[in-house]
Design a protein around this nucleic acid. Sequence first.
DNA 1: CCACTGAATCGACATCCGTCGATGAATCGC
DNA 2: GCGATTCATCGACGGATGTCGATTCAGTGG
Lengths: 111, 111
Amino acid sequence: MIASADCARPPLTGQPISEAAAAGPARVFKALGDPVRFRLVSLIGARQGGEVCVCDLTSAFDLTQPTISHHLKILRESGLIESERRGTWVYYRLVPGALDRAAALLAVPRV
Amino acid sequence: MIASADCARPPLTGQPISEAAAAGPARVFKALGDPVRFRLVSLIGARQGGEVCVCDLTSAFDLTQPTISHHLKILRESGLIESERRGTWVYYRLVPGALDRAAALLAVPRV
DNA sequence: CCACTGAATCGACATCCGTCGATGAATCGC
DNA sequence: GCGATTCATCGACGGATGTCGATTCAGTGG
């Protein structure tokens, strides 16, 4: 009530977004906000067949296997990718529609 | 060269993304990856007229003015928003097309 | 010229985060 | 059952990050 009263602007249109509603999107974009993780998503998405085994992902970076595993976990917990174990190997793929839903969050309102 | 040879998968299609090319997108998504900053973008984008003065943004959060200013700076440096001073107040608006370009980065290749 | 208001910058601090080496769990082949 | 391989988890460490109070800068109006 201090400053905003003097600014005298029209009220915000629509419902801008609640504090709670921002947590989910922020989590997804935070997951994408690391160069390694963004490249991981790119590598997985670019693979024809849609599946990549961890060993291929690890070899694509100059990082240790635990570090890659850590980033994959964050991406998994954000809902962007999912994994499946087949025999010795674990395969990662994009969750269908997850990236599209994230992109839809960036649609500018009122345009 | 250790593990990837044994995995024997088809090569990645397209150009997945280089290490350098991931830095830019990661910077943008990192900026969006904070609940406060995501709400700031939402608040600015939802405002009809497209401009919001800092005082309104500050009053929308339970945070101090320097903290909001800090987040605005990060969003500005990521290229998502821009500011203009008019008299006593500073107005922020979305950079036209910036959110759309960010959303386009999430398009799944090969689909 | 000076007080006042709005906003950015600075310095400090606690916490989070990315990375590593070491270890553990799951699976396969022999 | 045993060793080898793939991947996840754990513990630790250094650097980045979000937040604050205090200060400084910019612009307005007496």
